[in-house]
Design a protein around this nucleic acid. Structure first.
Length: 283
DNA sequence: CTAGGATCCTGTCAGC
DNA sequence: TGCTGACAGGATCCTA
């Protein structure tokens, strides 16, 4: 699922492809995913793309911004002059770029296009004034960013402040921004902490290990271009590769990568699939 | 404060 | 083959 590394990968590519393009037209085919006035962005030239947790912000030079949350199955795909030798679009783009899951098409100048598609329709796009981006509900509620503003001390404070299961805490965007299911599972495995462990019962040493583990897992995935487990693709239309390098996520019944004989187990916590090695991650 | 469930949505897959 | 039901999941909201 798109989490911090996936959205970061999209951000990196969009900064390469759409910056400098002017938005000529917006074709909204599924109203529900779009809010704000589309007219406000027409004529705006893309200045920069930013990321807040799992949300993307496309800043224009006319004082407006697009805030995009792709949730699980949203896709942003660019076609145009900045993408030389356009690659074949991944088969994960169901129905293709002009298929029934394409909900918004931005026509850019110089024959560019930005397609937004989303099979499950959970994602959204909002037009807001750039000065108001930080007041968008989702962004306003975000906790500190891993790999950025979240220091070890701050992380310790957050973890010690609650008795909730550590995995649930890691995925709570208001506590820590950007971590979702895949990376919570893998980081807890790397730090050898049981997903159901009560946060305030974790030792300082273990919290530090976890802090490093999350950072490591996120950075590794960014290097792989994100994880194309279900629907994630990059704006050039290609898949990321982290899904081939997960530690425990999606590996129910397989041997634990530490090779001490453990078999990866799958359970559910807070309604989410949870994978761990009962040998390495004791409660 | 916490956990748990329902909600949004549709493709996929197991089971009959 | 074709239908049905369960499942997946990020974030939010509601109830207990």
């Amino acid at each position: 699922m798109p989490e911090l590394p996936e959205v970061e990968s999209i951000k990196i590519q969009l900064n390469k492809y759409i910056v400098g393009h002017t938005i000529k037209n917006v074709d909204i085919r599924y109203q529900k995913c779009f809010s704000g006035n589309p007219k406000d962005i027409i004529g705006g030239k893309v200045k920069k793309v930013r990321r807040f947790g799992k949300a993307l912000v496309i800043d224009l030079d006319n004082g407006y911004s697009l805030v995009v949350h792709i949730k699980m199955t949203g896709q942003l795909i660019y076609r145009g002059p900045n993408l030389k030798n356009a690659r074949t679009v991944s088969e994960k783009v169901k129905g293709g770029l002009e298929g029934k899951h394409t909900h918004v098409v931005f026509t850019l100048d110089k024959n560019g296009k930005l397609y937004y598609s989303d099979v499950r329709k959970f994602g959204w796009i909002k037009v807001v004034k750039t000065s108001e981006v930080e007041n968008v509900d989702f962004i306003k509620r975000l906790g500190p960013e891993f790999l950025d503003s979240l220091t070890l001390d701050k992380f310790k404070e957050i973890v010690k402040s609650t008795s909730r299961a550590i995995k649930t805490l890691l995925m709570d965007q208001s506590k820590v921004a950007g971590v979702g299911n895949i990376y919570a599972n893998d980081a807890l495995f790397l730090a050898k902490i049981h997903p159901e462990k009560k946060s305030n019962k974790i030792s300082d040493e273990k919290i530090e290990e976890l802090y490093k583990a999350v950072g490591e897992v996120l950075k590794r995935s960014i290097k792989y271009g994100g994880s194309s487990e279900v629907a994630y693709v990059r704006p050039d239309g290609t898949d990321g590769a982290y899904q081939d390098h997960t530690l425990v996520y999606g590996k129910e019944g397989e041997k634990c990568p530490n090779n001490f004989g453990g078999i990866i187990k799958k359970t559910r916590t807070a309604g989410r699939g949870t994978y761990y090695c009962p040998n390495c991650q004791k409660l």
